[in-house]
Amino acid sequence: MGCFLTNSSLGRKLVMSISGCFLVLFILFHMSMNVVAIFSAEAYNMICGFLGASWYALAGTAVLALGVFVHFAYAFWLTWQNRKARGNVRYAVTVTEKGVSWASKNMLLLGVIVILGLALHLSHFWAKMQLVELLGHHENNLGLEPTDGAALIKYTFSQWYNVLLYLVWFAALWLHLTHGVWSMLQTAGWANDTWYPRLKCISGIVATLIFGGFAVVVVWFYLQTVCPCLAACGA
């Protein structure tokens, strides 16, 4: 049974579906955690502390990294196979078929944008928090404590280009999820004609929730630097 996850197209798709599902759940959690930062820096830092260099957080990080890696590696593998299946000669004229979303045909591209955003994000946060702790330091190169996530957020999103990059990133994620969420259910076999409109609606809601949750934090902290009065009422 183990091998059908690699040697069958439906098995490979199932791996995409399950790893994708895992990532969606993680992102939902991450988003909820971020939103806390708007209301209380202390609460946010408490969660950050909880997720520091403890063994369970590290194990979680490893599993998460594995999930991302599997999802990504399979995506490239499937795409490579799919291009091969398409043949050497391409159509001279192509169109987007009726009812087919742009996102569904560009999942790899969107995924790559998401991964690039992730790399940026890791350099902004993880490298300055959990990694610092792992290395045994008590201060990152910005002079902040590795557990003071709230300060780091404030710092990162005071720069407009970071805000812009993050928003692009979230937009790509939004598009990726509008197709990805219902698609993972379809692949797992949980769909039918009655449920398609509902599933697509749920996908939209999940994607929008995630986009909104992330974006609001970024925008909120940026606005604080533009308009300090907001900072007063925020924290």
Binding site: S9, N82, E97, V100, S104, K105, M107, H179, S183, Q186
Partner: peptide, 23 residues
């Protein structure tokens, strides 16, 4: 190739077969 659920097949299918059958 591997299906990525774009739904282009059902859009172009002359007999309008639904991807629910793929599910």
């Amino acid at each position: 190739g591997n299906c990525t659920n774009t739904g282009a097949c059902q859009a172009e299918c002359p007999k309008q077969i639904s991807i629910a059958h793929i599910a």
